[in-house]
């Protein structure tokens, strides 16, 4: 079954060209000229991947991604003419999984689509059936109690639970947490994380790591500005640690 890609782009010619090129690569392309149309199409039937331009008439790309994130963790790649750091960071913080600056090389774009798809696919669908079994082998980051809420993560069952309630994670956030959990207590550098989480050897951008870590902290930490579990080691990378 072909991968369904929703292209959100207000420039007709770019949209048409992307449709042609992606169709050529065997993708099933749906087009949206604006954020509102994209939201409707997404509500009708969520695509496998979204390509989002930031400058749209009406609601912009940042808001679109934020709205989508409230209801779904569909992988979203920003395709924008603006490559300034603050645009990249704002888009990733809004919930985008990746960021490409125009003009895109099709080979690179399809590589990125495949990578976000792999991340999404690597995440197991939540299984309610053997919840007890999943819990038994879950990683307990914080036992809960007076110090703060309990925090449990199960890579196998695909959930992060805070005080027993599941915290929604995007595919990228999940993959990042899973890799850090496998290397619990050990430092992973940004290039290592780009390789492990994003499958990028050279497409990577350190900002991807930094912003995703920041987003994950908001979901993980009691005080994201003073992290206890996902800590930064200046100049070296990041480390996940359980409460002592």
């Amino acid at each position: 079954m072909p991968v369904r890609v929703l292209v959100v782009e207000d420039d007709d010619r770019i949209r048409a060209a992307l449709r042609l090129a992606l169709t050529e690569e065997q993708y099933d392309v749906t087009e949206a000229a604006g954020a509102e149309e994209a939201l409707e199409l997404h509500a009708e039937s969520p695509p496998d991947v979204m390509l989002v331009d930031l400058m749209l008439g009406g609601m912009d790309g940042f808001d679109l991604i934020r709205r989508i994130r409230q209801v779904s963790d569909v992988p979203a790649i920003v395709v924008s003419a603006r490559g300034d750091t603050h645009d990249v960071v704002a888009a990733l913080e809004a919930g985008a999984d990746d960021y490409v600056v125009k003009p895109v090389v099709m080979k690179e774009l399809t590589a990125r689509i495949r990578a976000v798809r792999r991340r999404a696919a690597a995440r197991p669908a939540p299984r309610d059936g053997d919840a007890d079994a999943a819990r038994a082998e879950a990683l307990v980051l914080a036992p809960g109690g007076e110090d703060g809420p309990s925090l449990e993560f199960s890579a196998k069952a695909g959930w992060l639970k805070r005080d027993g309630r599941e915290v929604p994670l995007t595919a990228t956030e999940f993959r990042l947490l899973a890799e850090l959990a496998v290397h619990l207590g050990r430092v992973l550098s940004r290039p290592q994380l780009l390789q492990l989480v994003w499958d990028y050897d050279h497409l990577g951008d350190d900002r991807l790591v930094d912003v995703t870590v920041r987003r994950l902290r908001i979901k993980l930490e009691t005080d994201p500005s003073n992290p206890k579990h996902l800590v930064t080691l200046r100049g070296r990378g990041y480390r996940l640690q359980a409460s002592s």
């Binding site: 003009p103 090389v105 099709m106």
Partner: peptide
């Protein structure tokens, strides 16, 4: 962008 995507086709 239009041109590179079209040329790739």
């Amino acid at each position: 962008t239009t041109m590179t995507a079209s040329v790739s086709v």
